[in-house]
Design a protein around this nucleic acid. Structure first.
Length: 209
DNA sequence: GGACAGATTCTT
DNA sequence: AGAATCTGTCCC
């Protein structure tokens, strides 16, 4: 399968993020309708991007062709999923921030025992990955040709523009002015927006003990 | 070699 | 508001 965004330049990553709102993410018996996405560029223009400092073993997938999984571990315990955009050599990606489980709810619940309500099953990037049970071994696999565990499918009807809101990215200080987060207005599965706040109490701030 | 902050989530 | 807990980056 081929889609227009697969051939879009990396500079169009925000448009791609917008388009992917409403798409279906299918993996391991669970289907999630994406309600929230976030765009990340790379070299040069986007200090918040993992690719901003150049290629590493972790972000290598972002430097590859579009339509592949860039998975990364965050805070030592959670995994987040991006879909790569742009041609090889031009890093860009769309973070799958949240979605609504539309099939396989029982399976998703068993993977997310802490979720109190169904709308909490995938209401965050790490929650979404856990609901889909995407292992790190799926790193770099295609999301459009069926060879990997995750497949992205377009919705029957695109989400109309008037239903999609754009705003600042979550948890990001750099480039705070960019409205590169997209979500469906009033959707209960959209992750709660939190202004970036530095971590507290990593160590005794006074150096006393 | 070491300190630190982070595209988070869950519990107090 | 704090904890769990790993890694790239920056600064010795």
């Amino acid at each position: 399968m081929t889609y227009a965004w697969l051939d879009a330049p990396a500079t169009a990553v925000a448009d791609t993020a917008r388009q992917l709102v409403g798409w279906l993410a299918v993996a391991n018996g669970v289907t999630i309708r994406l309600t929230e996405t976030e765009a990340y560029a790379g070299l040069g223009g986007d200090p918040a991007s993992h690719a901003h400092r150049g290629r590493t073993s972790r972000n290598a997938a972002m430097f590859g062709p579009a339509g592949h999984l860039y998975l990364y571990r965050i805070y030592g315990m959670h995994t987040c999923a991006n879909v790569t955009c742009g041609p090889a050599g031009q890093p860009a990606g769309v973070l799958l921030r949240a979605g609504e489980v539309v099939s396989g709810v029982d399976v998703a619940r068993s993977r997310r025992p802490s979720a109190k309500r169904d709308i909490d099953l995938a209401s965050g990037p790490a929650r979404l990955v856990e609901a889909l049970d995407l292992p790190l071994t799926a790193y770099g696999t295609s999301v459009v040709d069926g060879t990997g565990p995750l497949t992205l499918r377009p919705p029957a009807e695109p989400v109309p523009d008037k239903r999609v809101v754009a705003g600042p990215r979550v948890g990001v200080t750099a480039a705070h002015d960019l409205a590169w987060r997209f979500w469906i207005a009033d959707d209960p599965t959209v992750s709660a927006y939190r202004r970036h706040v530095p971590r507290t109490s990593r160590k005794d701030p006074r150096g006393m003990s």
